[in-house]
């Protein structure tokens, strides 16, 4: 159990680092553009500058991701098993082969990044490779290839472009109403920043919703690519530690335990669910198993 908790902690570390990186970048843009707006730069140039920044971020996103996760591109000679699985899948998916990267950590994790098919990178951790069997690893990599094939990186970037544009429309609407150098300038600036923060927060939630939705799509497409949804489901079960949640103790022993205590023994599960950081895993497994079930008709 200690071991399972240890990797969970480090797992959120990677996600946190990525999220923090992009959060700081977004905040920098907002501050930069706000300063420009106060210096009197017009609306149209601002949209251009904003779009330019987002596009720049998109262009170098794979480098940011590789840099912040510490993933290293590896050759066929270093990781033949991994390359063989990727090779088999890209042929069937009709994709050019992406770069293959490895992160040296026991945390089981994987990601895909890249602006297009040519520059795409698939990265897995050494922990993932040692935890999963070939078919499960194939399931996970097929999921990541589905992200590349569906150009999810582009979709997320587009979503953030729209949110930036939306933010500026609200921002500009404020100044349009009250005039730029009125006596309300101080409080106006405050409200502008408030609106900016709220808009940014909503678009953050929206982008998260879009990316969750694209996760489900990638699960489905990846499962269709391998033809074995249950293998990705079992990989997810292993990665999420769900396997260890299915009890081993006999029902009759548990009943006997509960009879001893006036308050029924509280299962540790209730607490862990309250603090769980990845609620959708069960939902993803459920959908995958539904797909698997629909193949048995």
């Amino acid at each position: 159990m200690m071991h399972a908790k240890a990797w969970k902690k480090r797992d959120s570390g990677i996600t946190l680092r990525l999220a923090l990186c992009f959060f700081i970048l977004s905040m920098l843009y907002l501050v930069f553009l706000t300063i420009l707006a106060y210096l009197g730069v017009g609306f149209i140039p601002l949209v251009f500058i904003g779009s330019f920044l987002v596009i720049l971020q998109f262009l170098i996103s794979d480098k940011i991701v590789l840099w912040s996760t510490g993933a290293r591109v590896v050759s066929e000679y270093e990781f033949p098993r991994l390359h063989a699985i990727v090779d088999r899948l890209v042929i069937r998916a009709g994709l050019p082969k992406p770069k293959v990267a490895v992160m040296h950590t026991s945390v089981p994790n994987a990601f895909a990044t890249g602006k297009g098919y040519r520059s795409a990178v698939v990265a897995v951790t050494t922990g993932l490779m040692s935890m999963l069997d070939d078919e499960e690893l194939e399931g996970v990599i097929a999921h990541e290839l589905a992200h590349i094939k569906n150009r999810d990186m582009l979709a997320i970037t587009l979503a953030s472009v729209f949110s930036t544009v939306a933010w500026y429309m609200m921002h500009w609407g404020w100044y349009g109403m009250y005039g730029y150098r009125s006596r309300d300038q101080a409080s106006g600036a405050l409200i502008a920043i408030l609106i900016a923060a709220v808009t940014w927060f909503i678009s953050f939630l929206l982008i998260r919703a879009i990316s969750r939705y694209r996760e489900f799509i990638a699960d489905r497409d990846g499962a269709l690519l391998t033809g074995k949804p249950s293998k990705l489901a079992s990989a997810l079960r292993k990665i999420s530690g769900m396997m260890s949640r299915i009890p081993e103790r006999d029902l009759r022993e548990v009943e006997a335990m509960n009879a001893f205590f006036i308050i029924p023994a509280l299962s540790g599960d209730t607490l862990s669910r309250l603090f769980s950081t990845h609620p959708p895993v069960q939902e993803r497994i459920r959908r995958l198993m539904e797909l698997e079930a629909s193949m048995h008709t």
């Binding site: 949640r245 299915i246 009890p247 081993e248 103790r249 006999d250 029902l251 299962s267 599960d269």
Partner: peptide, 9 residues
Amino acid sequence: DVSKWYPIW
């Protein structure tokens, strides 16, 4: 809740 799937060996 899979944590309540107690086996009966």
